[in-house]
Design a protein around this nucleic acid. Sequence first.
DNA 1: GACAACTGTAATGGCTATGGTTACATAACA
DNA 2: TGTTATGTAACCATAGCCATTACAGTTGTC
Lengths: 140, 140
Amino acid sequence: MGVHVLAVLAYKEGATVSSGLLAASVNTHPVVIRRLLLALQAAGLITTGKGAGSGSRLSRAPSKISLAEVYRAVETDEPFALHSKRPSQSCPVGRCIEAALEKVFASAESALERELGQTNFAEILQMVKACCEGSRRGRN
Amino acid sequence: MGVHVLAVLAYKEGATVSSGLLAASVNTHPVVIRRLLLALQAAGLITTGKGAGSGSRLSRAPSKISLAEVYRAVETDEPFALHSKRPSQSCPVGRCIEAALEKVFASAESALERELGQTNFAEILQMVKACCEGSRRGRN
DNA sequence: GACAACTGTAATGGCTATGGTTACATAACA
DNA sequence: TGTTATGTAACCATAGCCATTACAGTTGTC
Protein backbone atom coordinates (compact mmCIF):
# COMPACT_ATOMS: atom_id res chain seq x y z
CA MET A 1 0.00 0.00 0.00
CA GLY A 2 2.88 2.32 0.76
CA VAL A 3 4.24 1.44 -2.62
CA HIS A 4 0.98 2.38 -4.22
CA VAL A 5 1.01 5.83 -2.63
CA LEU A 6 4.54 6.55 -3.72
CA ALA A 7 3.77 5.33 -7.20
CA VAL A 8 0.97 7.84 -7.49
CA LEU A 9 3.23 10.60 -6.23
CA ALA A 10 5.83 9.58 -8.77
CA TYR A 11 3.16 9.56 -11.45
CA LYS A 12 2.30 13.19 -10.70
CA GLU A 13 5.86 14.33 -10.97
CA GLY A 14 6.40 16.97 -8.35
CA ALA A 15 2.81 18.07 -7.99
CA THR A 16 1.37 17.97 -4.51
CA VAL A 17 -1.36 15.42 -3.94
CA SER A 18 -3.83 15.47 -1.07
CA SER A 19 -4.52 12.48 1.13
CA GLY A 20 -8.06 12.48 -0.21
CA LEU A 21 -6.94 11.91 -3.76
CA LEU A 22 -4.49 9.23 -2.73
CA ALA A 23 -7.19 7.53 -0.73
CA ALA A 24 -9.43 7.53 -3.78
CA SER A 25 -6.78 5.75 -5.80
CA VAL A 26 -5.92 3.20 -3.12
CA ASN A 27 -9.62 2.84 -2.38
CA THR A 28 -9.43 3.48 1.31
CA HIS A 29 -9.94 6.21 3.86
CA PRO A 30 -7.91 9.46 3.87
CA VAL A 31 -6.90 8.96 7.49
CA VAL A 32 -5.34 5.63 6.66
CA ILE A 33 -3.32 7.37 4.00
CA ARG A 34 -2.25 10.11 6.35
CA ARG A 35 -0.96 7.60 8.86
CA LEU A 36 1.05 6.06 6.08
CA LEU A 37 2.31 9.44 4.95
CA LEU A 38 3.65 10.08 8.44
CA ALA A 39 5.83 7.00 8.21
CA LEU A 40 7.03 7.99 4.77
CA GLN A 41 7.82 11.47 6.01
CA ALA A 42 9.79 10.12 8.95
CA ALA A 43 11.84 8.13 6.46
CA GLY A 44 12.49 11.26 4.44
CA LEU A 45 10.85 9.94 1.32
CA ILE A 46 8.20 12.62 0.99
CA THR A 47 7.48 16.13 2.19
CA THR A 48 4.03 17.18 3.26
CA GLY A 49 2.65 20.68 3.54
CA LYS A 50 -0.24 21.87 5.61
CA GLY A 51 -3.18 24.04 4.74
CA ALA A 52 -5.42 24.55 1.77
CA GLY A 53 -4.25 23.37 -1.63
CA SER A 54 -1.45 21.50 -0.01
CA GLY A 55 -0.50 17.85 0.09
CA SER A 56 2.47 15.57 -0.35
CA ARG A 57 5.18 15.14 -2.94
CA LEU A 58 8.30 13.07 -3.31
CA SER A 59 11.36 14.61 -1.74
CA ARG A 60 13.67 12.91 -4.24
CA ALA A 61 13.64 11.83 -7.84
CA PRO A 62 11.74 8.55 -8.29
CA SER A 63 14.91 6.90 -9.51
CA LYS A 64 16.50 7.68 -6.14
CA ILE A 65 13.88 5.86 -4.10
CA SER A 66 14.10 2.10 -3.81
CA LEU A 67 11.54 -0.39 -2.62
CA ALA A 68 13.85 -1.33 0.22
CA GLU A 69 13.44 2.12 1.71
CA VAL A 70 9.68 1.85 1.56
CA TYR A 71 9.88 -1.55 3.16
CA ARG A 72 11.97 -0.22 6.01
CA ALA A 73 9.76 2.83 6.42
CA VAL A 74 6.47 0.97 6.47
CA GLU A 75 7.18 -2.43 7.92
CA THR A 76 6.77 -2.45 11.67
CA ASP A 77 7.16 -6.01 12.89
CA GLU A 78 9.63 -8.71 12.05
CA PRO A 79 8.99 -10.62 8.84
CA PHE A 80 9.53 -13.91 10.62
CA ALA A 81 7.49 -14.53 13.72
CA LEU A 82 9.73 -15.65 16.51
CA HIS A 83 8.15 -17.42 19.43
CA SER A 84 5.46 -15.49 21.23
CA LYS A 85 6.01 -17.43 24.43
CA ARG A 86 9.61 -18.20 25.21
CA PRO A 87 10.51 -21.84 24.57
CA SER A 88 11.16 -24.15 27.48
CA GLN A 89 14.53 -23.30 29.01
CA SER A 90 14.90 -26.81 30.40
CA CYS A 91 15.25 -28.25 26.90
CA PRO A 92 18.66 -27.72 25.32
CA VAL A 93 17.08 -26.96 21.97
CA GLY A 94 14.57 -24.55 23.45
CA ARG A 95 17.30 -22.81 25.34
CA CYS A 96 19.43 -22.12 22.29
CA ILE A 97 17.19 -22.10 19.26
CA GLU A 98 16.29 -18.44 19.45
CA ALA A 99 19.82 -17.18 19.17
CA ALA A 100 20.47 -19.46 16.23
CA LEU A 101 17.31 -18.40 14.47
CA GLU A 102 17.91 -14.72 14.94
CA LYS A 103 21.19 -14.98 13.12
CA VAL A 104 19.70 -16.84 10.18
CA PHE A 105 16.66 -14.60 9.96
CA ALA A 106 18.76 -11.48 10.03
CA SER A 107 20.69 -12.63 7.00
CA ALA A 108 17.48 -13.64 5.27
CA GLU A 109 16.02 -10.24 5.84
CA SER A 110 19.10 -8.51 4.57
CA ALA A 111 18.91 -10.64 1.44
CA LEU A 112 15.34 -9.54 1.06
CA GLU A 113 16.20 -5.89 1.39
CA ARG A 114 19.07 -6.29 -1.01
CA GLU A 115 16.65 -7.63 -3.58
CA LEU A 116 14.11 -4.89 -2.95
CA GLY A 117 16.88 -2.33 -3.19
CA GLN A 118 17.35 -3.21 -6.82
CA THR A 119 14.04 -1.75 -7.89
CA ASN A 120 13.43 1.98 -7.79
CA PHE A 121 10.35 4.01 -8.51
CA ALA A 122 11.43 5.12 -11.93
CA GLU A 123 11.21 1.48 -12.94
CA ILE A 124 7.88 0.98 -11.22
CA LEU A 125 6.53 4.07 -12.91
CA GLN A 126 7.71 2.74 -16.22
CA MET A 127 5.98 -0.58 -15.63
CA VAL A 128 2.75 1.16 -14.70
CA LYS A 129 2.86 3.39 -17.74
CA ALA A 130 3.65 0.51 -20.05
CA CYS A 131 0.71 -1.42 -18.65
CA CYS A 132 -1.68 1.46 -19.17
CA GLU A 133 -1.03 1.92 -22.86
CA GLY A 134 -4.22 1.55 -24.80
CA SER A 135 -6.56 2.30 -21.94
CA ARG A 136 -5.93 6.03 -22.02
CA ARG A 137 -9.01 7.55 -20.60
CA GLY A 138 -7.68 8.21 -17.08
CA ARG A 139 -9.73 10.61 -15.13
CA ASN A 140 -7.03 11.00 -12.51
CA MET B 1 8.06 -22.54 15.41
CA GLY B 2 8.21 -25.10 12.66
CA VAL B 3 11.95 -24.65 12.72
CA HIS B 4 12.00 -25.32 16.41
CA VAL B 5 10.15 -28.62 16.02
CA LEU B 6 12.44 -29.85 13.29
CA ALA B 7 15.46 -28.79 15.30
CA VAL B 8 14.34 -30.97 18.18
CA LEU B 9 13.75 -33.88 15.84
CA ALA B 10 17.20 -33.38 14.40
CA TYR B 11 18.60 -33.23 17.91
CA LYS B 12 17.15 -36.67 18.68
CA GLU B 13 18.68 -38.23 15.63
CA GLY B 14 16.18 -40.70 14.30
CA ALA B 15 14.31 -41.33 17.52
CA THR B 16 10.58 -40.78 17.42
CA VAL B 17 9.28 -37.90 19.49
CA SER B 18 5.70 -37.42 20.57
CA SER B 19 3.77 -34.21 20.09
CA GLY B 20 3.59 -33.90 23.86
CA LEU B 21 7.35 -33.75 24.21
CA LEU B 22 7.69 -31.32 21.36
CA ALA B 23 5.01 -29.16 22.89
CA ALA B 24 6.92 -29.11 26.15
CA SER B 25 10.02 -27.85 24.40
CA VAL B 26 8.22 -25.22 22.34
CA ASN B 27 6.16 -24.35 25.40
CA THR B 28 2.78 -24.71 23.77
CA HIS B 29 -0.10 -27.13 23.44
CA PRO B 30 0.29 -30.58 21.84
CA VAL B 31 -2.56 -29.91 19.45
CA VAL B 32 -0.80 -26.88 18.09
CA ILE B 33 2.22 -29.06 17.45
CA ARG B 34 0.14 -31.71 15.73
CA ARG B 35 -1.33 -29.14 13.39
CA LEU B 36 2.19 -28.13 12.52
CA LEU B 37 3.29 -31.72 12.09
CA LEU B 38 0.57 -32.23 9.52
CA ALA B 39 2.01 -29.48 7.36
CA LEU B 40 5.50 -30.88 7.72
CA GLN B 41 4.24 -34.33 6.80
CA ALA B 42 2.52 -33.00 3.72
CA ALA B 43 5.83 -31.48 2.68
CA GLY B 44 7.55 -34.82 3.14
CA LEU B 45 9.91 -33.53 5.80
CA ILE B 46 8.86 -35.90 8.57
CA THR B 47 7.07 -39.19 9.02
CA THR B 48 4.60 -39.74 11.80
CA GLY B 49 3.39 -43.02 13.23
CA LYS B 50 0.23 -43.69 15.14
CA GLY B 51 -0.34 -45.56 18.32
CA ALA B 52 1.42 -46.04 21.57
CA GLY B 53 5.14 -45.31 21.78
CA SER B 54 4.96 -43.63 18.44
CA GLY B 55 5.69 -40.11 17.27
CA SER B 56 7.48 -38.21 14.54
CA ARG B 57 10.96 -38.33 13.09
CA LEU B 58 12.77 -36.67 10.23
CA SER B 59 12.34 -38.48 6.95
CA ARG B 60 15.74 -37.30 5.72
CA ALA B 61 19.14 -36.50 7.12
CA PRO B 62 19.20 -33.04 8.76
CA SER B 63 21.77 -31.91 6.22
CA LYS B 64 19.22 -32.61 3.49
CA ILE B 65 16.55 -30.33 4.89
CA SER B 66 16.83 -26.61 4.27
CA LEU B 67 15.02 -23.74 5.92
CA ALA B 68 13.48 -22.87 2.58
CA GLU B 69 11.53 -26.12 2.64
CA VAL B 70 10.22 -25.39 6.10
CA TYR B 71 9.26 -21.94 4.98
CA ARG B 72 7.32 -23.29 2.04
CA ALA B 73 5.70 -26.00 4.14
CA VAL B 74 4.57 -23.75 6.96
CA GLU B 75 3.94 -20.39 5.40
CA THR B 76 0.41 -20.06 4.18
CA ASP B 77 -0.11 -16.53 2.97
CA GLU B 78 1.96 -14.18 0.88
CA PRO B 79 4.85 -12.48 2.65
CA PHE B 80 3.87 -9.11 1.20
CA ALA B 81 0.33 -8.00 1.75
CA LEU B 82 -1.17 -6.93 -1.52
CA HIS B 83 -4.22 -4.74 -1.37
CA SER B 84 -7.12 -6.19 0.54
CA LYS B 85 -9.60 -4.07 -1.34
CA ARG B 86 -8.78 -3.67 -5.01
CA PRO B 87 -7.44 -0.23 -5.86
CA SER B 88 -9.55 2.21 -7.79
CA GLN B 89 -9.73 1.10 -11.40
CA SER B 90 -10.44 4.64 -12.58
CA CYS B 91 -6.94 5.72 -11.61
CA PRO B 92 -4.23 4.70 -14.04
CA VAL B 93 -1.87 3.83 -11.22
CA GLY B 94 -4.49 1.88 -9.33
CA ARG B 95 -5.36 -0.04 -12.45
CA CYS B 96 -1.81 -1.20 -13.12
CA ILE B 97 0.06 -1.20 -9.85
CA GLU B 98 -0.92 -4.70 -8.84
CA ALA B 99 0.58 -6.38 -11.85
CA ALA B 100 3.79 -4.44 -11.43
CA LEU B 101 4.03 -5.27 -7.76
CA GLU B 102 3.39 -8.94 -8.21
CA LYS B 103 6.37 -9.23 -10.49
CA VAL B 104 8.67 -7.44 -8.06
CA PHE B 105 7.40 -9.32 -5.04
CA ALA B 106 7.80 -12.65 -6.74
CA SER B 107 11.46 -11.99 -7.35
CA ALA B 108 11.86 -10.74 -3.80
CA GLU B 109 10.34 -13.89 -2.43
CA SER B 110 12.51 -16.09 -4.57
CA ALA B 111 15.54 -14.21 -3.28
CA LEU B 112 14.33 -14.90 0.20
CA GLU B 113 13.92 -18.59 -0.41
CA ARG B 114 17.30 -18.73 -2.07
CA GLU B 115 18.83 -17.31 1.08
CA LEU B 116 16.90 -19.65 3.35
CA GLY B 117 17.89 -22.54 1.15
CA GLN B 118 21.51 -21.99 2.11
CA THR B 119 20.99 -23.11 5.67
CA ASN B 120 20.19 -26.72 6.50
CA PHE B 121 19.40 -28.41 9.76
CA ALA B 122 22.80 -29.91 10.25
CA GLU B 123 24.08 -26.35 10.56
CA ILE B 124 21.27 -25.32 12.84
CA LEU B 125 21.89 -28.32 15.03
CA GLN B 126 25.53 -27.41 15.18
CA MET B 127 24.70 -23.89 16.25
CA VAL B 128 22.39 -25.14 18.95
CA LYS B 129 24.93 -27.59 20.29
CA ALA B 130 27.67 -25.01 20.25
CA CYS B 131 25.46 -22.64 22.21
CA CYS B 132 24.66 -25.24 24.84
CA GLU B 133 28.22 -26.10 25.79
CA GLY B 134 28.76 -25.52 29.46
CA SER B 135 25.13 -25.76 30.48
CA ARG B 136 24.97 -29.52 30.22
CA ARG B 137 22.27 -30.59 32.56
CA GLY B 138 19.57 -31.15 29.93
CA ARG B 139 16.69 -33.16 31.18
CA ASN B 140 15.40 -33.64 27.67
C1' DG C 1 -11.12 38.09 9.58
C1' DA C 2 -14.03 34.27 8.00
C1' DC C 3 -14.06 30.37 5.40
C1' DA C 4 -12.46 26.38 2.99
C1' DA C 5 -9.15 22.81 2.32
C1' DC C 6 -5.80 20.40 4.27
C1' DT C 7 -2.93 17.65 7.81
C1' DG C 8 -2.11 15.51 12.57
C1' DT C 9 -3.93 12.63 16.00
C1' DA C 10 -6.71 10.22 19.26
C1' DA C 11 -10.45 6.98 20.17
C1' DT C 12 -13.23 3.34 18.67
C1' DG C 13 -15.14 -0.73 16.40
C1' DG C 14 -14.79 -4.62 13.17
C1' DC C 15 -12.32 -8.27 10.85
C1' DT C 16 -9.09 -11.70 10.30
C1' DA C 17 -5.35 -14.67 11.56
C1' DT C 18 -3.07 -17.14 14.99
C1' DG C 19 -2.62 -19.68 19.02
C1' DG C 20 -4.58 -22.04 22.99
C1' DT C 21 -7.91 -25.22 24.83
C1' DT C 22 -11.18 -28.93 25.22
C1' DA C 23 -13.21 -32.91 23.43
C1' DC C 24 -13.52 -37.04 21.04
C1' DA C 25 -12.76 -40.62 17.41
C1' DT C 26 -9.20 -43.71 15.83
C1' DA C 27 -5.03 -46.43 15.51
C1' DA C 28 -1.25 -49.18 17.29
C1' DC C 29 1.08 -51.70 20.73
C1' DA C 30 1.74 -54.54 25.05
C1' DT D 1 -8.40 -54.48 26.64
C1' DG D 2 -6.13 -50.66 28.39
C1' DT D 3 -2.65 -47.26 27.42
C1' DT D 4 -0.53 -44.06 24.54
C1' DA D 5 -0.59 -41.43 20.51
C1' DT D 6 -2.29 -39.05 16.42
C1' DG D 7 -6.11 -36.66 13.60
C1' DT D 8 -9.59 -33.39 13.67
C1' DA D 9 -13.33 -30.42 14.78
C1' DA D 10 -15.16 -26.70 17.57
C1' DC D 11 -14.64 -22.77 20.27
C1' DC D 12 -12.60 -18.84 22.77
C1' DA D 13 -8.99 -15.35 23.51
C1' DT D 14 -5.79 -12.27 21.75
C1' DA D 15 -3.33 -9.23 18.63
C1' DG D 16 -2.80 -6.59 14.56
C1' DC D 17 -4.63 -4.01 10.90
C1' DC D 18 -7.95 -1.28 8.62
C1' DA D 19 -11.91 1.76 8.58
C1' DT D 20 -14.36 5.35 10.58
C1' DT D 21 -15.58 9.34 13.28
C1' DA D 22 -14.29 13.38 15.50
C1' DC D 23 -11.74 17.32 16.39
C1' DA D 24 -7.74 20.56 16.81
C1' DG D 25 -4.28 23.12 14.22
C1' DT D 26 -2.50 25.35 9.82
C1' DT D 27 -2.43 27.55 5.56
C1' DG D 28 -4.20 30.01 1.60
C1' DT D 29 -8.09 32.76 -0.46
C1' DC D 30 -11.96 35.78 -0.70
